[in-house]
């Protein structure tokens, strides 16, 4: 009997689902956080470079 056939009856199902759900939430959450971080860094650097150029132009 495979796991899928025991889905409704097995008493340990809650433990299995809980551990997979926690892992999934943390891993996917961390990937999203890393993507957001990358985007944030790029935006921050673009702003910084533009501000530096503006400052250089003003000085010149």
């Amino acid at each position: 009997m495979s796991f899928f056939e025991l889905l409704a009856t097995d008493k340990h199902l809650g433990y299995i689902v809980a551990s997979y759900a926690i892992t999934f939430v943390f891993v996917v959450g961390y990937i999203i956080h890393t993507l957001w971080l990358g985007k944030n860094v790029r935006q921050k650097l673009v702003r910084r470079i533009k501000a530096r150029r503006k400052n250089d132009d003003a000085t010149a």
Partner: peptide, 18 residues
Amino acid sequence: FTAPAEKYQGEVYRIIYI
């Protein structure tokens, strides 16, 4: 999830895969 259940632990051993 399609592997057979473990002799002593039953289904709960599937936590091993993570």
